[in-house]
């Protein structure tokens, strides 16, 4: 087991190192450099910036030097927790991202919970009632969730929240709780705002997981041990939930690792529409304004988040299913 953890840790570390390289490449991708567009933006707003200052900035970021030196300058800063300066916002990237990253995690985690609480029972139900009307209905619903573009669903749900329930739209808190200390009321307020992003980000993932769960269950349900248990007179409910479901969950957990990247992507676009204080809108603005340093860092952090999520799910899986450790 320890060996397995060590091996997985090393793999995760290697992946993260590679991710940093890719992020850096993406920072470098746009033609010209970000300083040019920064200067252009400034001059549009009526601010001007002398040529010498541009040169100074150019040196600070190592622009014009060989690419590996630029990478070295960048990564050594990043490792020390210095993520550089966002050019568009004019503040250190550090001050912009952490709160938003936390919110991203919170929304993603609650979406995962939502997906699980929906997908597992439905998957089990569909498997035990294969080809029933309800099975078809849920399957269809799952596919529908997969088919509706997230942003459209978000827009529609937001509109429904606005025009039918006169709900506060956008953001995660009502204005009165925005800066309030944590309390039960604030938590409830958060929940009342969280349901839209949760549902929207969850819908696309749910369909896939229902399918997986259903298939896994079908595999297990026909196994002889189930027959045996049934023959012994176990109640059907206990019979299903005690054995096959637990076994079926194993491969399920491993798919969670792959669901995570999709989910975080889903949260990104939903957050843009719903004005959530997560990292998604920040990423979009950084990309649109070619603030590539900020964009690269965000992409890297999101990827690291995913790698860690997968890592954890692998470890969990190894705990639940000893066979994995030997693989």
């Amino acid at each position: 087991m320890i060996q397995f953890i060590i091996r997985r840790t090393m793999m995760a570390a290697a992946t993260i190192a590679l991710i940093s390289v890719v992020s850096f490449i993406i920072i470098q991708l746009p033609p010209g450099d970000f300083l040019t567009s920064y200067v252009a933006t400034l001059s549009q707003q009526g601010d001007t910036i002398p040529e010498e200052a541009v040169t100074a900035l150019r040196e600070a970021y190592g622009l014009g030097e060989p690419i590996y030196i630029q990478y070295y300058k960048w990564i050594s800063g990043v490792v020390q927790g210095d993520f550089g300066q966002s050019l568009e916002w004019g503040v250190p990237v550090n001050t912009l991202i952490w709160d938003r990253l936390r919110m991203t995690l919170a929304v993603s985690a609650s979406s995962i919970l939502f997906v699980w609480t929906v997908a597992i029972p439905i998957g089990v139900f569909s498997a035990t009632n294969q080809y029933s009307l309800a099975d078809y209905f849920f399957t269809f619903l799952g596919f529908l969730g997969l088919a509706i573009p997230n942003f459209l669903l978000a827009l529609i749900l937001m509109w429904i929240g606005f025009s039918w329930f006169d709900q506060d739209v956008g953001g995660l808190y009502s204005p009165e709780y925005q800066n309030a200390p944590w309390s039960m009321a604030k938590f409830i307020d958060l929940l009342s705002h969280l349901w839209i992003p949760m549902v929207v980000a969850g819908t696309s993932g749910t369909a896939g997981l229902i399918r997986t769960m259903r298939a896994n269950m079908l595999d297990e349900i026909n196994q002889p041990y189930v027959e045996t248990a049934r023959a012994k007179g176990l109640s059907e409910l206990r019979l299903i939930w005690k054995y096959p479901v637990r076994v079926a969950l194993n491969p399920f957990i491993s798919t969670v690792g792959y669901a995570l990247p999709e989910l975080i992507g889903g949260v990104t676009i939903v957050a843009v529409v719903l004005n959530l204080p997560t990292i998604g809108p920040l990423l979009l603005r950084a990309l649109l304004s070619q603030d590539m340093y900020l964009a690269g860092i965000i992409l890297m952090l999101l990827s690291i988040l995913t790698v860690l999520g997968t890592f954890i799910s692998d470890i969990l899986l190894a705990i639940f299913d000893p066979r994995i450790r030997l693989e």
Binding site: T15, L18, I19, V22, I26, L29, P30, P31, Y258, L260, P261, E262, I264, G265, G266, T268, I269, G280, L283, L284, L287, L288, Q290, A295, G296, I298, L299, L302, S303, T306, V307, T310
Partner: peptide, 22 residues
């Protein structure tokens, strides 16, 4: 493959499309 799949898809797509020459 594992590496590519560990990067969140949509953000990666976004970043790459933003990097297309305008």
């Amino acid at each position: 493959i594992e590496f590519i799949r560990s990067i969140p898809t949509l953000p990666l797509w976004m970043a790459l499309s933003a990097a297309l020459p305008p």
